[in-house]
Amino acid sequence: MKEKPFGYRKSHSEPGPGDGGRTGSWRVKRPVIDLEKCIPAKRNKPACFTCWVFCPDNVISRTIPPVIDYQYCKGCEICAEECPADAITMVDETIFIKE
């Protein structure tokens, strides 16, 4: 067997979804956007996107309407806290598991 090169494995990671694992499994509560209240959705204009700015995991899209990627949303609740329109509610994950 050929010997492995020295230090060939490093703990380097490239920026991109999922390098920290499927962090969606950490979630206890799920942020759900109410499109009746969400500013860009309501006005059909690229406005606000405060949640997109604040999400530490960069899992909210800058689209109309904003979409949350639940594979990686860890449920930290920052988006819900920051949303100026109170459009995001945190819903217990158990409800979705039952579904």
């Binding site: 490093k10 703990s11 380097h12 990671s13 490239e14 920026p15 390098d19 920290g20 694992g21």
Partner: peptide
């Protein structure tokens, strides 16, 4: 040109 995180939290 090829950004990467070096030795970030490693699970």
């Amino acid at each position: 040109a090829n950004p990467a995180n070096l030795n970030t939290v490693t699970l």
